[in-house]
């Protein structure tokens, strides 16, 4: 986590898949995300061939559920992470994954560009804050999220600045709820 240059946020590509089933945009998303999803699944305990198959299924889900992506409430990486995590629980741990109902803007409305920008910026801020954490704490977070926690390695100092992004997400959710009424 040493890079500090802003990452490409992929919102445009996913929206092209969302709005016009653009297979070129999808191929770009695939090139970037499939190898990372595969890596995540291997670190979580999948064999290489299982991770390959599951990563393909995750990317197929990205296409099929693109209409549910809301860039005012998640970055593309966050959204794909949740799909990969759920696939991991489902395929590797053989458990169902209960999730709250997806909330969408529906056909008539969409999130405001300013809200999309703010959320993407705040995710970038979170990334910078995480990259500023000492290595041991970064390793701890990876263990928590990539499912290879061992009991005693966990009690290390860490601190994540999540307050701002929590408030931002709450505001975005309120706006969405207002449109849904």
């Amino acid at each position: 986590m040493k890079k500090t240059k802003p990452l490409k946020n992929w919102v445009k590509q996913l929206q092209q898949v969302q709005k016009s089933q653009d297979s070129k945009a999808f191929a770009e998303l695939f090139d970037y995300f499939a190898p990372r999803v595969k890596s995540f699944l291997i670190r979580s305990g999948a064999s290489n061939s299982m991770a390959e198959d599951c990563a393909q299924e995750v990317m197929a889900t990205v296409w099929l559920k693109a209409h549910l992506f809301d860039p005012s409430r998640a970055s593309v990486s966050t959204w794909i992470f949740t799909i990969a995590r759920n696939k991991n629980i489902d395929a590797l741990r053989k458990q169902r994954r209960p999730e709250p109902e997806d909330l969408t803007w529906g056909p008539e409305s969409e999130p405001e560009a300013a809200d999309i920008l703010t959320l993407q910026q705040e995710t970038e801020q979170l990334r910078l804050a995480m990259s500023a954490l000492p290595d041991a704490q970064q390793a701890l977070l990876q263990k928590a999220y990539f499912g290879d926690l061992s009991h005693r390695e966990i009690a290390i100092e860490t601190g994540l600045p999540l307050g701002t992004i929590k408030s931002r997400l709450r505001l975005a959710l309120d706006k969405l709820r207002q449109t849904m009424r």
Binding site: R36, F40, A55, A74, V76, S77, T78, I80, I165
Partner: peptide, 29 residues
């Protein structure tokens, strides 16, 4: 709590960005 859970999801998103890549098979796409 839903907003808070999504904030924690964002941590996972950042970690996914940072994770080392593992090549997909040639015919994966």
């Amino acid at each position: 709590c839903r907003a808070a859970a999504q904030a924690f999801d964002s941590v996972g998103g950042v970690l996914l960005d940072e994770t080392a890549k593992v090549s997909m098979s040639k015919d994966a796409l």
